[in-house]
Amino acid sequence: RKEMTAACTPRRRIINLTSVLSLQEEINEQGHEVLREMLHNHSFVGCVNPQWALAQHQTKLYLLNTTKLSEELFYQILIYDFANFGVLRLSEPAPLFDLAMLALDSPESGWTEEDGPKEGLAEYIVEFLKKKAEMLADYFSLEIDEEGNLIGLPLLIDNYVPPLEGLPIFILRLATEVNWDEEKECFESLSKECAMFYSIRKQYISEESTLSGQQSEVPGSIPNSWKWTVEHIVYKALRSHILPPKHFTEDGNILQLANLPDLYKVFERC
């Protein structure tokens, strides 16, 4: 597991931080080997919608929660590849102030007048994250320049770009939802926020969305749709870069829909 690298990086740093090793061990302890084997050997059937997909393993048909699986995938990559990410360069710098204002204007932020003026909160978020810029760049390849612009994001899987519609809320939550006081809790909560931002979430995906850094293989055609990215990038990574937690067998994120021999018997009677 320590050699797990989802995106190509030129050289690998050895990380011996106790906090990170502890988080890696927790993933191992909570892992479910049968689910790992199923995901490793599954045959992708198709997307139901951005949140759900169908896959077959041996004779069984499964309904998989793409949102939760991708979130767990990105969390584990962030923990196992800690401080070893490439950088996704933004085509132009994104001012943190503008991103924070967009987030505060969104109902998702939960902002009320009692929280104070949005401009003041946005300025605080910019200054707060600028103070964390060195650590964010060093460990997470999340790059913020001296003017308070976001200029780079971590490359977690080759050819995958997170849904940038979720970027404003991500920046807001970096400042408000991460435990910045304790090292282990900081790395864990920061990785979880980043994983949620990178995950496939239906509120940020339309039929026209593209999450891939590449064009489709047909010359002159439109960019790959999110469905292509889910199948050929995300579920491909799920084959080798995730140890599913045991609770996925109990919380409805992986559901067995049918045993195909039983279905064949039904059709034979028709």
Rank of each mutant, 00 (worst) to 15 (best):
R1V: 12
E3G: 04
T5V: 11
A6D: 11
A7H: 11
A7D: 13
C8E: 07
T9H: 11
T9I: 07
L17F: 14
V20S: 15
V20F: 15
L23S: 09
E26W: 13
N28M: 11
N28D: 06
E29H: 11
Q30G: 08
Q30R: 05
V34H: 09
L35G: 11
R36A: 12
R36I: 13
H42S: 10
F44C: 04
F44H: 11
V45C: 10
G46E: 02
P50F: 04
Q51Y: 10
Q51M: 09
A55M: 11
H57F: 08
Q58I: 12
L64S: 10
L64H: 12
N65Y: 01
N65S: 11
T66R: 00
T67R: 11
T67P: 12
L69I: 04
L69A: 09
E71R: 08
Y80A: 03
F85D: 03
F85M: 14
L90H: 00
P95A: 10
L96A: 01
F97W: 02
D98V: 08
D98A: 05
A100F: 15
A100D: 00
E108T: 04
S109I: 15
G110W: 12
G110F: 05
E113H: 12
E114M: 14
D115F: 15
G120H: 14
A122E: 00
A122C: 14
Y124E: 01
E127W: 15
E127H: 08
F128P: 01
K131Q: 13
K131N: 10
L136T: 04
D138M: 04
Y139M: 03
L142C: 08
I144C: 02
I144L: 07
I144F: 07
D145E: 05
D145K: 01
E146T: 03
G148L: 04
N149R: 05
I151S: 07
I151M: 08
L156G: 00
V161R: 05
P162R: 00
P162N: 00
P162Q: 00
E165Q: 03
G166F: 12
G166Q: 12
G166M: 07
L167E: 00
P168H: 06
F170W: 03
F170P: 00
I171A: 02
L172G: 01
R173L: 00
R173D: 15
L174P: 00
E177N: 14
N179R: 03
N179L: 06
K184S: 05
E185A: 05
F187A: 09
F187P: 02
S189C: 04
L190G: 01
E193Y: 02
Y198Q: 02
I200L: 06
R201L: 03
Y204F: 04
Y204M: 09
Y204K: 06
T210C: 05
T210M: 06
S216T: 10
S216F: 07
E217P: 08
S221P: 12
S221D: 07
N224T: 09
N224F: 07
W226I: 05
W226K: 09
K227R: 09
W228Q: 07
V230D: 02
I233D: 14
K236Y: 14
A237Q: 10
A237M: 08
S240T: 09
H241I: 13
L243P: 14
K246I: 05
T249A: 09
D251Q: 09
I254S: 10
I254D: 02
Q256R: 11
P261Q: 07
P261H: 12
D262P: 05
D262V: 10
Y264Q: 03
K265A: 03
K265W: 15
F267H: 05
C270N: 15
